[in-house]
Design a binder for these strands. Structure first.
Lengths: 210, 210
DNA sequence: ACCTGAACACCGTTCAAGT
DNA sequence: ACCTGAACACCGTTCAAGT
């Protein structure tokens, strides 16, 4: 009649995805092991396999769940602004859920949440006057720019990055004059504004010739 | 004068890198284990640790070795052509060495081979009239576009990709009209020309205002 | 019928014992 | 001084035995 404890609550795909995302956001994607997810739900690791076929499938489900927080670009608005806003939000979301960025490069995602946004993005691009071939190319380019930019920002956030800055400064100044001229901008925090600017350049590159 | 031993038994960092790259190119990055590399050289896995501090370090060394095949962009030539040619060659190289593409997103690479090309790329961009901040942004954007594009092409080459095409066609046609309009271009082989075109758009986006 | 402990076939890396 | 087998602390996943 009365459930013994909250931990003994029925297992479900939803609860498994939630638990895995919590671990990933807190301790990183490498902390997401079937044993750890099981333990956090008070069950054996093997019980998860009744609801999820494999760890890879779980990673995809986690990504699609996180992607559900993305806004929907509005084809009625100015296409440049809609595209810019959407991919900036995408970038922000990947920084919040580093595990999703990693999953996106490991697997080719095509979950329901991403599909719906894809439809809207393509509608915006077509409404902006891009032909079908160019729109296909643009959505790919924008996505990789976003995932790449997020991975780059994430790499700079972790401690191991210090090594890289140090290595940059050990390059002989005479042989690397351009690196030294640009270094202050390469070393500055990979900020939201930085990515936002790159995004505007990319969108500008796809502007149909007037 | 000590004879340079062509002796196949003499272990060295160079031979370890070569053996690891051979395995990676033939069987994929997941086949690169310390045990496998050791076996292919006729030694125990543990012997490798005398020449290489860790597996991660080996992966970085492998990437830098492969990157040595890259051309050097020429700051004296037209900057658009030089940049385009260099990143297209970069793309080709990543398709030849899939392991390198993976390593580039896992770690922040800054080996000697990449540093030299970075200097030349930046010199081209500065010569093209980009200011320091924009040049820093552009080299990052171009790199991620290239790595992302290569990973995307590689993902389409492996068998698991079929699932994705199938999933795309199961979307309800009425709710995904734009996806269906663009689908033929999304599904066509991610060819060299496809990437080349995206690269031109990106470079065009960074063209200084006349 | 559902759950799970033990086990399997792997990893990277440590360490002490081998030559 | 060099090398390496065994071992440690992990993985994802299978499977048969438990309830």
């Amino acid at each position: 009649m009365v459930a013994a404890t909250q931990d003994s609550q029925a297992l479900s795909v939803e609860r498994i995805i939630d638990a895995a995302l919590t671990i990933a956001d807190r301790d990183g994607i490498e902390a997401v092991t079937m044993r750890a997810v099981g333990t956090s739900l008070g069950t054996a690791a093997m019980s998860l396999y009744r609801h999820v076929p494999s760890k890879d499938a779980l990673l995809e489900l986690m990504a699609d769940r996180a992607l559900a927080e993305l806004p929907h670009p509005d084809p009625a608005g100015d296409w440049r602004e809609q595209i810019h806003g959407f991919f900036l939000a995408f970038h922000d979301l990947l920084l919040l859920h580093p595990a999703v960025a990693r999953t996106m490069v490991e697997m080719t995602l095509a979950g329901p949440e991403l599909s719906v946004r894809g439809e809207n993005v393509l509608t915006c691009l077509l409404a902006g006057g891009l032909d079908e071939a160019t729109a296909a190319q643009a959505i790919t380019a924008l996505t990789w720019q976003t995932v790449g930019g997020a991975l780059y920002a994430l790499a700079r956030l972790n401690p191991a990055h210090e090594d890289r800055s140090i290595r940059l400064r050990t390059l002989p100044k005479e042989q690397f004059p351009s690196v030294y001229r640009v270094a202050p901008f390469l070393e500055e925090d990979a900020s939201r504004d930085h990515f936002s600017g790159a995004l505007r350049h990319l969108i500008h590159g796809y502007e149909p010739a007037a």
